[in-house]
């Protein structure tokens, strides 16, 4: 996993609430068996049907920070939503509310999701719309977001932050506790089902 500490990049304003994962990446793209190359599926419905959709506007090409409306990532648990955002080039998504599963997936998958008050989101929207070259900094070291006239702290637990900064993978961390897992398994009730 790629390490993240301080990321600075241009931002895309996505003025929509309740953007579900079916919009982020439609189901047809989930049938691939690979784990990369999902950038073509990102917002495919909107990109395909609406020439005015933000990601179709040339002034936002190459942006790496997505500033989204509330309840971003609702719906299906597909992790492809995170992969598509990351493969497209986004390193961070800012919103005033994320769906739980999406948030969990993103923090595990090295896409930094940052919770900000809605006023700050609105301010960033206005700013980026007025000047698409505006740069936004997401600083994991100091846990704050910065842009011209904006300096806003965000919360992220120490453990997740450490993992993201180290680029560490969960499985390796858990395998350090193999004895504890084996102990737990010994205590399993005898009537509980097995599949074989």
């Amino acid at each position: 996993m790629e390490k993240i500490d301080v990321h600075t990049g241009r931002a895309v304003p996505l003025r929509a609430s309740n953007v579900d994962t079916d919009q982020i990446i439609p189901a047809v793209y989930l049938k691939r068996v690979s784990r990369t190359g999902f950038e073509d599926g990102l917002f495919a419905g909107w990109r395909g049907s609406d020439p005015d959709f933000v990601l179709n506007r040339p002034e936002h090409s190459g942006a790496s920070v997505l500033v989204a409306g509330p309840d971003f990532g609702t719906g299906s648990s597909r992790e492809h939503a995170v992969w598509a955002l990351r493969d497209y080039g986004f390193r961070a998504v800012l919103s005033s509310r994320f769906a739980d599963i999406f948030r969990g997936n993103s923090l595990k998958g090295g896409l930094l999701t940052v919770l900000l008050p809605q006023e700050v989101v609105e301010k960033l929207w206005d700013m980026v719309e007025a000047d698409p070259t505006t740069e936004v900094t997401v600083d994991l070291v100091n846990r704050e977001v910065r842009a011209p006239g904006v300096q806003e702290a965000f919360e992220l637990d120490d453990y997740t932050r450490w993992r993201l900064m180290e680029g560490l993978d969960d499985i390796a961390l858990t395998l350090g506790h193999t004895e504890g897992i084996a102990g737990f398994e010994q205590a399993r009730q005898r009537w509980l089902p097995v599949t074989q």
Binding site: R35, S77, R78, E79, H80, V82, I101, G104, N105, K108, G109, D170, I171, T174, L175, I181
Partner: peptide
């Protein structure tokens, strides 16, 4: 999610 499935399968 998919990575969590991986995690469960492995651990």
């Amino acid at each position: 999610g998919t990575s969590q499935v991986e995690h469960v399968l492995a651990t």
